[in-house]
């Protein structure tokens, strides 16, 4: 596990200015910044409390991308570690963690796709026996969903994942710095694009 990747990812969104991990601008001097006092080793004191409250949900966000609970738990662990070292206000924890999990999982999909593409170029064509055909179909569907998610605009993909992981419109709005009114629009566009991606891909195979 490379804990640095999540923090880097979080920094990347804020650096680019279009995917802020939290809804509000946090400045030095805001009272909320110090609300979670860092304990030993710079890990915030409320980490366990937040972890116990949110862990299944954050695993769920990553699992919606990756389709594997084990991989989703790896992502969630990374994300909580980054959260433990952050000064994200406790009230924004669910949103921040969900956005971070979505981005980290989507980043994994992207790097894995690049790797797979290289391996397919290098390797011989895969042959599949009929006995495992059904498992392959399911795996193939999941792969198609992952690829489709990766092709969506990142903001749409994250909004979609957050909404389908049970975050309310208000929570999605705060986490992505959207107005509550535009959450529905973003989710609608994402769902329409996802259908088109899945259909386009299904018909081309």
């Amino acid at each position: 596990m490379a804990p640095g990747r999540v923090t880097a990812a979080a920094a990347a969104w804020s650096a680019r200015g279009h995917h802020r991990p939290t809804g509000r601008t946090v400045r030095k001097g805001d009272g909320v910044v110090g609300s979670a006092a860092a304990g030993r080793d710079g890990i915030r004191a409320d980490l366990e409390q937040v972890f116990r409250a949110c862990y299944p949900r954050i695993v769920g966000v990553a699992a919606r991308v990756l389709g594997s609970r084990a991989e989703a738990e790896d992502v969630a662990q990374e994300v909580f570690l980054a959260f433990g070292r952050s000064s994200v206000p406790a009230g924004q924890a669910v949103g921040w963690l969900s956005v971070a999990a979505a981005h980290t999982a989507l980043n994994q999909v992207r790097s894995r796709r690049r790797r797979t593409a290289r391996e397919q170029v290098a390797g011989a064509p895969e042959t599949v026996g009929p006995d495992i055909a059904e498992a392959v179909v399911t795996r193939d569907e999941r792969r198609r969903v992952r690829a489709a998610l990766d092709r969506l605009p990142r903001r749409q993909a994250v909004a979609l994942l957050l909404r389908h992981s049970g975050l309310s419109y208000a929570e999605v709005a705060a986490a992505l710095d959207l107005s509550p009114g535009s959450v529905g629009t973003t989710v609608r566009r994402a769902e329409s694009a996802l259908r088109e991606e899945l259909n386009r891909h299904a018909s081309s195979e």
Binding site: A63, R64, G67, A148, L160, H164, A190, E191, R195, L198
Partner: peptide, 10 residues
């Protein structure tokens, strides 16, 4: 679309 997305996302 929402139903399809929900199914696709687990």
């Amino acid at each position: 679309d929402a139903t399809l997305s929900s199914a696709a996302l687990g």
